[in-house]
C-alpha cells in the first residue's frame, strides 16, 4: 500500500512523513530466532493504531523494536527499515528513541514496586533534561486524567490494585510528555469495567494531548473501537490491515477475534479457512 492510498483511507496530512514507518522489517532475536518477518506498517500522526493478534504473533516484538528496548534484549532488525518522522531509526537504542519522544508502556503493569506512587510518577520526569529536582505541579497532567492517583501518592506501588497500577504506568508515561505512546496489553488481567475506563481515558488523552498511540492488545473489540487503523498479526507477519471501522466488519475478524460470527464455527473450519487464507 502506498502513501497516497493510505491518505485516501482517512489518514491525516499526506505530505508529512508518517510518525512510524516499518518497511518490510525482519526482526531476529539472539541472532538465530526469527521473531518477525516482512512487516510493513504506517502510523499517521494523531492516530490510534491497533495491533492485534494472538499470543506470540510478534506484536510486542514490533513495539520493542520501535521503542528501541528490544535492542537490550538482543533483538535486531536484520532486514528492512524503521523510520520515525521520516528519520531512519533502524536499530536505535531505547535512549535515542526516548529522546525523540517515544514512550513505551511495557506489558504487565511494570510499576516500580518498592517506590511509592509519587516516586513512580517522579521517575517520569527524568527525560526532561535529566533533571534532579521535581515539582508536584509537574504531576498535574497525570492527576487530570487519573484523579484517583492523587489520593494514593504515598502508597507503595507494589501494594496498589491492578487498576491503579495500570493507571500509574500510563500516568508516569504522560508525565514523560511523549509524542508517540506505545502500549503493550493495557487491558491484560483487568476487569471489563476497568478496561472500559482505561480505554476511554486513552481516547481522551489521544484527542486532548495530541499523542499518537499504538496499542497492542488481545482485546480486539475494545481496541478497534477506539482505533483509527488496525493491523492484525499472526506468526510474525501482518495478515490484515485496514481502517479500524472496516476491519471490524471483516468476517475473519468477527470470527476469530471478536467472537461475533453468525454461525458457530468448528475448529476444523477454522483450520480449513486458515489454509485457504495463506494461499490467497
Amino acid at each position: 500500500m502506498t502513501t497516497s492510498e493510505r491518505a485516501s483511507t482517512g489518514g491525516s496530512a499526506s505530505q508529512q512523513p508518517p510518525v512510524v514507518e516499518l518497511d518490510n522489517v525482519e526482526i531476529v532475536y539472539d541472532r538465530h530466532f526469527l521473531a518477525v518477518q516482512g512487516v510493513s506498517m504506517e502510523v499517521q500522526e494523531s492516530d490510534i493504531v491497533a495491533l492485534l493478534g494472538p499470543n506470540g504473533a510478534g506484536k510486542s516484538t514490533v513495539l520493542k523494536m520501535i521503542s528501541g528496548i528490544g535492542r537490550s534484549e538482543r533483538g535486531e532488525v536484520t532486514r528492512g527499515s524503521v523510520s520515525y518522522k521520516g528519520e531512519d531509526v533502524t536499530n536505535y537504542g531505547a535512549n535515542e528513541m526516548v529522546d525523540r519522544g517515544i514512550t513505551h508502556i511495557l506489558e504487565g503493569r511494570r510499576v516500580f514496586e518498592d517506590l511509592t506512587v509519587e516516586e513512580n510518577l517522579r521517575c517520569g520526569l527524568y527525560r526532561d533534561g535529566r533533571r534532579f529536582r521535581f515539582d508536584v505541579e509537574d504531576y498535574r497532567i497525570a492527576f487530570e486524567y487519573f484523579p484517583q492517583l492523587e489520593e494514593i501518592l504515598d502508597l507503595k506501588a507494589g501494594y496498589a490494585s491492578g487498576g491503579q497500577q495500570q493507571m500509574l504506568v500510563v500516568a508516569r508515561a504522560l508525565i514523560h510528555r511523549p509524542e508517540l505512546l506505545l502500549l503493550d496489553e493495557p487491558s491484560l488481567g483487568l476487569a471489563p469495567k476497568l478496561v472500559r475506563d482505561i480505554f476511554e481515558t486513552l481516547v481522551e488523552i489521544n484527542r486532548e494531548e495530541d499523542i499518537t498511540m499504538i496499542i497492542a492488545d488481545q482485546n480486539a473489540k475494545r481496541t478497534l473501537e477506539i482505533a483509527d487503523y488496525g493491523y492484525v498479526m499472526e506468526n510474525g507477519q501482518v495478515e490484515l490491515h485496514d481502517p479500524a471501522a472496516e476491519l471490524m466488519e471483516r468476517e475473519e475478524i468477527k470470527e476469530f477475534y471478536l467472537g461475533t460470527s453468525g454461525d458457530e464455527s468448528r475448529y476444523r473450519d477454522i483450520r480449513h479457512y486458515k489454509i485457504r487464507k495463506r494461499w490467497t
Partner: peptide, 19 residues
C-alpha cells in the same frame, strides 16, 4: 528525580530504560 530513578532502575531495568 535521579535518586528515584536509580532505585527504579534497580527494581526494573527495562521499565526504567523506557523512561
Amino acid at each position: 528525580v535521579t535518586g528515584s530513578i536509580l532505585r527504579a532502575a534497580a527494581t526494573d531495568e527495562q521499565a526504567a530504560m523506557v523512561l
